[in-house]
């Protein structure tokens, strides 16, 4: 029997009268990779922030493992790994130091050396974080999200701003993570990323859900045969080439 990790019902958030997230509902099953797709400003990050209790929704609920994160913060974040959009680090901090700091935050942390190994970062342990390449830095942020031995990870726009090679490096990492059975919630605006990784996707525009399902289902419901064209069709922004 599949088990629901994340359950969202009617989540709504307004900023100065404008609904940035509008009655959003979906659920994520254990072991699935769920992709929230949409343009910049579609409400993806705000949705994640409400799920994590960083922002308070006007309406609706978000339950992770049956609990509201904001009300059970300590307990919830032992099971939730998070990589926030564009992570920054302390000035002059080294890779192993960031890892040690994060390790100190959890009751039952994993071995960061193993994680660095897994993500191909072992040789960079002593390097300052700000000397890492974009791809290395993002792989580090995934590794950091996993330090607490979470059951679900939230990855917000992990590959935005990376070049093609670096993006693929990160995808390979996520693929391995997926194969290990980790539940992954990710936001992206790269359709290729969604096609490669996601079991289910939800398309968000102006805070509203346009459609959801497996990648195949979403494509099948459009007049096109690939996700990128289908996505633009759903977004009502088809551009003739």
């Amino acid at each position: 029997m599949s088990e629901t990790c994340l359950e969202i019902r009617g989540l709504t958030k307004c900023y100065s009268g404008r609904r940035v997230v509008d009655d959003v509902s979906f659920s994520v099953e254990k072991g699935a990779v769920f992709g929230l797709l949409g343009h910049n400003g579609a409400g993806k990050s705000t949705t994640i922030e409400m799920i994590l209790g960083l922002k308070k929704p006007e309406k609706g609920t978000a339950l992770v493992f049956g609990k509201e994160v904001a009300k059970h913060k300590k307990e919830s974040f032992e099971k939730i790994g998070v990589q926030l959009q564009s992570s920054f680090y302390q000035e002059a901090i080294r890779v192993e130091e960031v890892c040690k700091e994060r390790t100190a935050l959890y009751q039952n942390p994993g071995d960061y050396k193993e994680l660095l190994q897994q993500f191909g970062l072992s040789q960079l342990e002593k390097s300052p974080v700000n000397k890492l390449s974009g791809g290395e830095r993002q792989r580090l942020s995934v590794a950091l999200a996993l330090i607490g031995n979470p059951e679900i990870v939230f990855l917000d726009e992990l590959t935005t701003g990376l070049d093609v090679a670096a993006r693929r490096e990160v995808w390979r990492t996520l693929k391995e993570l997926k194969d290990s059975g980790m539940t992954i919630f990710l936001t992206t605006h790269y359709m290729e990323e969604a096609e490669k990784l996601c079991d289910r996707i939800t398309l968000l525009k102006n805070g509203k859900i346009l459609t959801e399902g497996t990648v195949d289902e979403v494509v099948a419901r459009s007049p096109y045969d690939n996700l990128e064209e289908a996505y633009l069709w759903y977004m009502d922004e088809e551009v003739e080439l």
């Binding site: 960083l54 974040f77 998070v82 926030l84 992570s87 920054f88 680090y89 994060r102 009751q107």
Partner: peptide
Amino acid sequence: KKILKSFYCSP
């Protein structure tokens, strides 16, 4: 740098 924010997202 959102370091405090990332600490918020921990136990």
